[in-house]
Each structure stands twice: as structure tokens, then as C-alpha cells.
């Protein structure tokens, strides 16, 4: 152990972390504790009174078939979005790494979609694939595909997944490009001399060495798919058709702010919080073990 630098001032360290702590307290711990408190209450229909009901809200939520459907939707949506966003971004980054002329220009263009707000991204895709006026919807129909995400659940799901992944690709791309640049060129050359073809080099050298980046992005993308895609779903499908794209976070919003079932909505957000914490813990506990940090 190298000797640690110590400062005699006992007060200064707390002062330095205070702003960060304050933000976390006000924007996370306070609302989270409010949600937990709210999840044990039930409001009367006019919102004039509330009664303590213990864990009854959780019991109702977990036995609601709509909620179980929402869990299934979320799993499909999140896994598909994260996998698609990461796979496409990695592919593009590996390809961009081979570009020699106009590298900077190419990369800049690749990063632009990240600057688009989720709701706008959703609207873009909605317009492009709108069955009555969308350009791509028209092309799909001329290709003989019956395209109607407004009525067809799986198609609606596909549309939100692609829209959500599209927006995240830029972000992932940026990290993968940086990750690729950190891999010494001589390693790839050594592998080439060692008789590994391009595909083999990717899977045996580049992919394992990108693992720290991939792992980081897995955590980020899962969280993104769980929470930040609300805007896209809201703009594109509104959770429909028939709850086919109603993810957990969308259902929290729908039950709480549209249907005003505050207690159950709060119970749902508490469950959601537990799920995400558990997921992140699992990722760090098990997946990270397989990650090799240079």
C-alpha cells in the first residue's frame, strides 16, 4: 500500500461532497421514500382522504394480470433494445475503425442522433412508419408486408424497440470507438501473424478486450431501456395497441397520472426500483467477473 495523503481538516471533505449529496437526497432519496410511503396508502375516489393499507397495494399489483403482462413486455423490450443497440453500435464502431479518410466527419455524423430528444425520436419513427402516411410504411406495404403498428401488437413492439435502440446506438458507438482505440494495434498485428483471420481476431482478441466497455454499456443500456424510453413509447404507441407495449415504467405513469390510482402506482414504482437495483447488483456480481480489465 502506498501511503495515503491525509488532510487535517475534518470539515472540508464533507463540504466538498455536500452538493452531490444534496442533489442525490433531493432528487432520489426523498422521492423514493415518498414512493414507499405512498405505496402503503389508498386514496378515496375523489382524492380527499387516504387510508393506510399496509402491503395490500403490492398484493393487488402482483396479482393483476395486466401487471404480469407488463413485466413480460418490459423484459422483451429491454433485452431487445439493449442487444440491438449494442450489437449495431459495435458493428458500426468496428467498421468505423477501419475508415481512414474522413474518420472525424464520419464519427461526427454517427453521434448526432444522440442529440435528438426521445420524444422527437419517437415522433420521427412514428411519422416514418405511420400506416396512413409514413414513407417506410408505404414501402413495406408495396413489398407485400401488411404493416399496421396501430393494430398489430408485435409490429408496434418492433417499432418502439427499433426507435429506442436507434437513439442509443450513437452513445454506444462513441464508447465502442474509444474502447477500440485503446486496444494496441500491435496486438491485432500479432494475431494476424499468428494466423487468425479477421473474424477470428474479432472474437478472440478485440471482443474480449472490449469487455469492460461492453459491460459498462450493458448496465447503462438496461437502465436506459427500463426508464429513459418512456418518451419514445409515449410518442409512438402510448403503450398500445391493447397494452402490447406497456412497459413497467409506462404503466406506473398510466396508472398514477392518467388513472389516478396513486397507491398502486407507487407500489409499482417501488417494485421497479427493486428490480433495477437487483439487476444492477447481479450484473456487477456475476457478469463483471468475466470482464478482463487490461
Amino acid at each position: 500500500m502506498s501511503p495515503r495523503v491525509t488532510f487535517p481538516n475534518k470539515f472540508l471533505p464533507y463540504l466538498l461532497v455536500a452538493p452531490q449529496l444534496a442533489i442525490t437526497l433531493v432528487f432520489f432519496y426523498w422521492p423514493a421514500s415518498q414512493a414507499i410511503y405512498q405505496s402503503t396508502l389508498r386514496e378515496d375516489p375523489f382524492g380527499l382522504d387516504s387510508a393506510f393499507v399496509g402491503l395490500d397495494n403490492f398484493r393487488r399489483v402482483l396479482s393483476d394480470p395486466n401487471y404480469l403482462n407488463s413485466i413480460q413486455v418490459t423484459v422483451i423490450f429491454s433485452v431487445a433494445t439493449a442487444v440491438l443497440a449494442m450489437a449495431v453500435a459495435m458493428f458500426l464502431a468496428v467498421m468505423a475503425d477501419k475508415v481512414i479518410r474522413g474518420k472525424g466527419f464520419y464519427r461526427t455524423l454517427m453521434i448526432w442522433p444522440y442529440a435528438v430528444a426521445p420524444a422527437i425520436a419517437g415522433m420521427l419513427w412514428l411519422f416514418m412508419f405511420n400506416p396512413s402516411m409514413g414513407t417506410f410504411a408505404y414501402m413495406l406495404r408495396s413489398a407485400g408486408i401488411y404493416w399496421d403498428p396501430l393494430l398489430n401488437g408485435p409490429q408496434a413492439m418492433l417499432l418502439v424497440i427499433v426507435a429506442a435502440a436507434w437513439k442509443q446506438i450513437s452513445y454506444n458507438f462513441l464508447f465502442f470507438v474509444a474502447g477500440l482505440q485503446a486496444i494496441p494495434k500491435t496486438l491485432v498485428e500479432a494475431a494476424a501473424i499468428d494466423g487468425a483471420g479477421e473474424t477470428k481476431r474479432f472474437w478472440t482478441i478485440i471482443f474480449p478486450l472490449l469487455a469492460p466497455t461492453t459491460f459498462f454499456l450493458l448496465v447503462i443500456n438496461t437502465t436506459y431501456a427500463f426508464f429513459d424510453t418512456f418518451g419514445i413509447i409515449h410518442a409512438v404507441t402510448g403503450g398500445g395497441p391493447g397494452k402490447a407495449t406497456e412497459t413497467l415504467v409506462y404503466k406506473v405513469y398510466n396508472d398514477g397520472f392518467v388513472n389516478l390510482i396513486l397507491g398502486e402506482s407507487a407500489a409499482q414504482s417501488v417494485i421497479l426500483m427493486v428490480i433495477v437495483i437487483a439487476l444492477t447488483a447481479v450484473q456487477f456480481r456475476y457478469v463483471e467477473k468475466k470482464v478482463h480489465y487490461g
Binding site: P184, T186, L187, E189, A190, A191, A192, I193, D194, G195, A196, G197, I205, P208, L209, A211, H292, G294
Partner: peptide
């Protein structure tokens, strides 16, 4: 002829060992 088929082996300045 590609590097793999030249039947050569190279020792690099930074060794280029596969860290993983």
C-alpha cells in the same frame, strides 16, 4: 502473401502479448 502465410514470427517492441 498475407502475414500468416509467410511463415514468420515477430517479437514486438511492446511485446504485444494478449492481456486477457
Amino acid at each position: 502473401v498475407g502475414p500468416a502465410e509467410r511463415d514468420i514470427a515477430m517479437v514486438f517492441q511492446n511485446y504485444a502479448l494478449y492481456p486477457h
